[in-house]
Design a protein around this nucleic acid. Structure first.
Lengths: 225, 225
DNA sequence: TAGAAGCGGAGGCATGTCCTCCGTTTGCGT
DNA sequence: ACGCAAACGGAGGACATGCCTCCGCTTCTA
């Protein structure tokens, strides 16, 4: 009924053996935890130990750390995009905006690995870049809707969003050990600065252009040392 | 008139030879630049190369990186304290508060090394800790004065200051290559959220206690990996 | 001008990471 | 039940990197 195993195309993904699949999942789970807690510079040896498998097993499944990272964060970013779409469906433009900001910040605050992927230019290419691009139109839509409804200060720019994510998220990371949720305090502070009202200070610096934003998040940092 | 050179106490700091002193300054200058630009993990070999002297010279003058770091940042923090005192002399409480916030943020934004020293527990002890403590009363004074004058929201806490420094400073560091001054944009945003007015959102999380703050900045992080 | 102080940088030691290799174990089709 | 291919584990080799010493040579200074 099936062709003999030997005749399968090598590129074709035959199902893994049961134990192999189990280990693959363990590795991914361990990697997710470690990357989130310690950033991208954890060793594959660390991952193996934490997953309770041998190093060989890890290297057999994921030729390099790059593959592991990509596998993990592709799905992570998919999730972020989904949440953004969800926020856009919310009827109240301000609530939609807040949801989006909270959600992104939360990810950044809890996951050091994600922060590093977003900034590293080593992972800037591949589909990560393209997936990240799916976020841009959504961001613009959410921001513009809030501004047209008059609930968000007019000098705010869509490019401010990722910077705010990073900025407030950094507090989360910092205070993780003592008070994992304080970042919400600062997010609220910022949100109070975003509502339009008479007497707002004009912003002293123009927002980043998209080109500048790209320079920061990936392509175009200075060469190492 | 002077006792013969051989009889000098070893601990006594006799003046360095002219060339030696010149090199010492070069090393400090190079280290300041490199620490600011690349953080604390630059090599003493790097410092030597950048200063145009041999490694031996560096190690002779500063037994370990720790000494170099301490020498540099002790004076850096002195400067910060001086600026804080200066801010406190300003008549307008709000302007005093803003000056202080701007100043600290600026340092954090431009100097990656400073950020790391502030957080590292490796340098938490020694006098750095004590010097840092001189900042606490000043911070409290500035914050309370602004609140009593009714120009700063009442639920703000002195412990928020270092977190804001770090938070907004992180943007500066991030965007350094593209737009070194954007952090001012976000600082302004935050300041607009700090003025008291009807309709402020109550802050969802209590401020950090000083104990929690200490746990973050130094003593009490989790053990390495 | 002599001797002390300082200099430079090759290179040894230690650490840490990456990844391979091969003897052993495990799942699976027959 | 059996046998083989697939998968496993982890010791350890290759390599990179950082820290620091040591000693022959140079430069100050009295």
């Amino acid at each position: 009924m099936e062709p003999p195993v030997a005749s399968r195309t090598p590129g074709e993904d035959r199902p893994l053996r049961k134990d192999a699949e189990r280990n693959r999942r363990r590795i991914l789970a361990a990697a997710r935890e470690l990357f989130a807690a310690h950033g991208l510079d954890v060793t594959l040896d660390d991952v193996a130990r934490h997953a309770g498998v041998g190093v060989g097993t890890v290297y057999r499944r994921f030729p390099g750390k790059e593959d592991l990272v990509e596998a993990l964060f592709a799905e992570e970013i998919d999730l972020l995009v989904a949440r953004a779409e969800q926020a856009l469906e919310e009827a109240d433009p301000w609530r939609s905006f807040v949801d989006f900001l909270v959600d992104g910040t939360e990810h950044m605050a809890c996951d050091q690995g994600l922060r590093e992927v977003m900034l590293s230019d080593a992972y800037a290419h591949d589909r990560l870049g393209r997936i990240r691009d799916r976020l841009v139109p959504l961001t613009e839509a959410i921001v513009h809707r809030a501004q047209e409804a008059g609930v968000l200060r007019a000098d705010f720019s869509p490019t401010d969003i990722p910077l705010l994510h990073g900025m407030i998220g950094s507090v989360g990371l910092l205070a993780q050990s003592a008070r994992p949720e304080v970042w919400r305090r600062y997010l609220t502070l910022v949100l109070d600065g975003l509502r339009p009202r008479p007497g707002l200070t004009p912003l002293p610096e123009p927002a980043l252009t998209f080109a500048e934003l790209e320079q920061i998040t990936g392509i175009g940092g200075e060469p190492p040392r």
